[in-house]
Design a protein around this nucleic acid. Structure first.
Lengths: 320, 320
DNA sequence: AAGCTGATTGCACGTATGTGCATGATGTGT
DNA sequence: ACACATCATGCACATACGTGCAATCAGCTT
């Protein structure tokens, strides 16, 4: 028996005794002839490895008012994450990401292809994903992460790795610039078979998990502060009336993208491509993302939304 | 808003913060402006009411050797409950019942009809059932519980109540003697519409949950010690070679029932009726039930078995 | 309005639990 | 075979947690 499988066995037995029989760790330790701390660790392992699954059900009648209003107005499923009144932005993001991580786990099943964007929110989600046993899951990066300063390989590898590990999935990186200097380069590269294979995978995703970028706010979204856009680019976006982006694709407050030249150079999937993906999970938090979220809702690129309470309130209360 | 629903809401929020966000109860208490102990109680409520569900998955590769051998030999799914080497009978029964309770919850879905027998094991299961939200579940008593000393109404009501509450089910009692004095009385009563309605329900059960009685052992099974059988009856059973019973229906070690006159007077479903129920969950613990379990396995009245380790070992190891 | 009853709350206590650290076991590459 | 690195274990401590108890609150009866 391998070390790994004996650990799983022990963890399983400890988990059964703890969660099903309600023994104390002390009692389990005696029975299994190990120290109590080992039992504590076995249980941690059991939870982390998905041997133990803890679900919190939200019965329909317990949905919050905000969730119901979002559902009515936009026809999507919303999860409003309660946030303490005086919580920091970082705190909100963290909490929203934890909830989102559970939604991702719920959405991924056998043979699913999961498209993932990147950004601060996505990184936080990756850190919190619970493991889930699923077969033949594929995780595919939806937009490039390279820029003038970095190739983005290690950054996106860490993020994708988080997703890949959680579902024991095959991971498909997309090692291209986030935004090309020249749209022709992009077109040329898109014809490369190694690249077009990934593009096909992206287009056939069952689930797309993404955050939203926002031009305003502090801290700025990664895309606007990380060396991806130069001064001219930013000015172009302002002129075009852009309020935010989804996977490095920029849109206006009414959800439109036509005439936004920058998108010709973007590595991300067009919003049309996105809308063909059946399950589109958007995770977003913080008041600064208000206009960005409004735009994304108008663009109908969201089918399921995880949002913090403050932002949810802003979006439903001030008309939309 | 009713008091009940506000409690559910609070419990749900606390559960989300605790189980999904991994906050401490202290932090949740501050955020919800209640004391930490109230949070502890809310979480207890959330678990008990099924708002929070904790599952322990047994991957196929982690099945115990005993479970695999039982599966091979008898073609049924077995759950072997680990038991401490020096555990008392009461302890084994309790543990087995806890595991069984989880299996019952897993087996019951919307619109299921659940047949329940009675006995010490069944009572223990009823005490440990986790709540599960399901719609239009029906719980039906499979055999009478009245005897010379008691009507068995309050006894079976408590047991059935446990099942009914757990699934918010309609409960159908079966207020007849466990064993009739005269088989003709039974035949007559079976024609009564109020009774035959219950009989139909029994026959159309989707799941049947039962323990096994055993003629030997300490403590004796309720049926052999509770005023259900007189001296003559017991002698008759011995003469007929009976080793145990399932829902007051007696069988021999080879699983046969033919010629066991007592069964003509029993209120329980014939083994033929039982075998028509698709999901037949048998829960049994303790070495004294060895012959009884062997007989039930031979009779093929079990499709899923929850058994303690000691008994499982006895059944697979000493030939069968 | 007063009185009763049952449910809910916070406090305080003892127990149960998570985790940094030192130690020993296991395995790996040279 | 040896040294090194990695991992598992137990100890001890600080913290988190469950629960009996008394006080308080809400609902109902008289």
């Amino acid at each position: 028996m391998t070390a790994h499988s004996s650990r799983s066995r022990d963890a399983l037995r400890a988990a059964q005794l703890y969660y099903l029989q309600h023994l104390t760790m002390e009692a389990i330790a005696r029975e299994m002839r190990v120290s109590r701390s080992s039992v504590s660790r076995l249980l941690t392992y059991a939870r982390d490895s998905g041997l133990v699954e803890i679900q919190v059900h939200s019965p329909q009648e317990a949905r919050s008012q905000l969730e119901l209003r979002i559902a009515e107005r936009y026809g999507i499923t919303a999860h409003v994450v309660p946030s303490a009144v005086r919580a920091s932005e970082a705190d909100r993001l963290e909490r929203t990401a934890r909830t989102a991580a559970h939604r991702v786990a719920a959405a991924v099943g056998d043979r699913a292809t999961v498209g993932v964007a990147w950004g601060a929110t996505m990184s936080a989600i990756a850190r919190h994903l619970p493991s889930k046993t699923a077969h033949e899951v594929r995780v595919v990066q939806m937009n490039g992460a390279a820029n003038v300063r970095t190739t983005g390989v290690s950054y996106s590898a860490e993020l994708l790795g988080g997703f890949g590990n959680a579902f024991a999935a095959s991971v498909y990186q997309f090692s291209v610039p986030a935004i090309f200097d020249d749209p022709n380069t992009r077109r040329a590269l898109w014809r490369e078979r190694s690249v077009s294979r990934v593009l096909e995978l992206q287009a056939s995703s069952d689930v797309y998990v993404f955050g939203l970028g926002s031009r305003i706010g502090d801290p700025r979204s990664r895309i606007y502060s990380g060396g991806y856009l130069d001064r001219d680019d930013l000015q172009e976006l302002v002129r075009a009336g852009v309020v935010g982006d989804c996977g490095t694709v920029f849109y206006r407050s009414d959800g439109s993208t036509d005439g936004v030249a920058m998108n010709e150079r973007s590595s991300g999937p067009s919003l049309d491509t996105v809308r063909r993906i059946p399950h589109r999970l958007c995770v977003v938090s913080g008041a600064a993302k208000r206009d960005s979220l409004r735009g994304a809702l108008a663009a109908r690129i969201i089918t399921e939304l995880v949002v913090d309470e403050e932002l949810a309130r802003l979006v439903v209360e001030a008309g939309g």
